[in-house]
Amino acid sequence: MSPALPLLTAADGHGREARPLVVTGVPDLLDDLLRLAAAAGVTTTVATEPGALRRAWAAAPLVVVGMDRAEACIAAGLPLRPHVVLIGGHVEDGRVWSAGARIGADHVIFLPEAEPWLIDAFSDLDGLGLRGSVTIGVVAGRRGSGASTLAVSLALSGLRHGLHTMLIDADPRGSGVAPGLARLLPAAGDPPPGGTGQRPTNPFPPPDGAPPDPLGGGAAPSWPGLVARRGELAVVSWDLGVGPDVPVGPMATLLSTARSTSDLVVVDLPWQQDPAAALALSSCRTALVVLRADLASVMAAERVCAAAGRRCSDVRAVVRQRPSARLDPAMVSEMLGVPLA
């Protein structure tokens, strides 16, 4: 029997924070990862029990996790962080993609095909930043509640506040985010009626306390110029040719890319979860359930909240209230058993 691997190994106790962290208990995989790290000229910290390594997990510039330890990392409640790579066994194994989403992996790779890529990743540690990313899911408690409109509003708010934002339409059966964008995104580059050349009002005024910033030069300022100053917004939808269900593999890749490139990720989720939507929900820090303040909507939203709570630890209600509504938001929150957003 081979001797057990130590919980933590390093050449010495100095400079541990600067080392990439390798989390695996499989000797052959560990040998491969150490070989690739040596080829990149770096020394790694090796872990076998992630529950005891919270400080190393948060401080390492890069974390490489073997599939054998993925579930243990998830069970240990390690915080989501950028620059996590999961080493999968087989690309057809759906458990790999599910674990990658739940652990917050930026990349899911398979060896030996990805060895050159991983060597490059080990070599480029100085270029890695620990910018955090927040993923928020928005789902309707009942059809027609306005979840897609709220998702668009959140994305545009992130844009206004200078965040790199990605809006993901994960509901191919719904009306999509395009109607919401059409209503809420002003045509900043269009000249006013009559062609007078008058400058349009800035649709995204600076946050409170910030000095006013006029739109850029030129007779008709364009939307790209405004985006460059206020942040960036990427909108991702799906070709109708893929069918009614979004493929799980592309969704996992998209979520990894979103986390590594965006400050804020907003996911418009379907009312009824398919496997890809369940995967996206598992990656969310917060899930917002949108509903109207009426009894029928509350009864439908109870099931949605229960389903969301099985995959996301922070589920909140967004209650749309009308003057004629008999239920106030606090009552709706109590009935659903989730806090108000």
Rank of each mutant, 00 (worst) to 15 (best):
240 L>K: 01
287 A>C: 08
132 G>H: 12
92 E>C: 06
114 A>P: 01
325 A>H: 08
67 M>I: 06
7 L>R: 15
97 W>G: 08
256 S>F: 13
84 V>S: 05
15 G>K: 02
37 A>N: 14
162 G>K: 11
197 G>D: 09
2 S>Q: 01
222 S>E: 13
118 L>G: 07
320 R>T: 15
280 A>M: 09
101 A>E: 06
253 T>W: 07
229 R>S: 11
2 S>E: 07
57 W>C: 01
91 V>G: 04
260 S>C: 06
194 G>H: 04
48 T>G: 03
130 L>N: 12
37 A>Y: 15
179 P>Q: 08
73 C>L: 03
3 P>F: 09
45 T>G: 02
227 V>I: 03
183 R>Q: 04
178 A>P: 04
78 L>Y: 04
196 T>K: 00
271 W>S: 15
291 L>I: 03
97 W>Q: 05
172 P>M: 14
253 T>V: 09
271 W>I: 13
232 E>Q: 15
223 W>M: 15
123 S>L: 02
20 P>I: 00
100 G>E: 11
156 L>W: 04
313 S>Y: 01
102 R>K: 10
124 D>W: 12
168 I>C: 03
219 A>C: 12
139 V>L: 05
334 E>Y: 05
9 T>C: 11
128 L>W: 07
234 A>G: 09
296 A>I: 00
15 G>Q: 01
235 V>Q: 15
156 L>D: 00
23 V>A: 10
113 E>T: 10
33 L>S: 10
309 G>D: 05
331 M>Q: 10
67 M>V: 03
278 A>W: 13
166 M>I: 01
154 L>N: 02
132 G>I: 11
91 V>M: 12
200 P>H: 09
89 G>W: 04
57 W>P: 08
289 V>M: 05
9 T>M: 13
67 M>L: 07
258 A>R: 07
152 V>A: 06
58 A>N: 10
229 R>W: 00
228 A>H: 09
41 G>L: 04
327 L>H: 06
150 L>Q: 09
80 L>Q: 10
175 S>K: 07
187 A>G: 02
124 D>Y: 11
180 G>P: 05
100 G>R: 00
87 I>A: 09
306 A>F: 04
263 D>Q: 14
175 S>V: 14
159 L>K: 10
135 T>A: 11
87 I>N: 04
260 S>W: 02
71 E>I: 01
51 G>F: 06
333 S>V: 03
130 L>W: 05
226 L>M: 14
161 H>I: 02
223 W>T: 12
293 A>E: 11
22 V>Y: 07
291 L>F: 03
155 A>S: 08
262 S>F: 09
84 V>R: 02
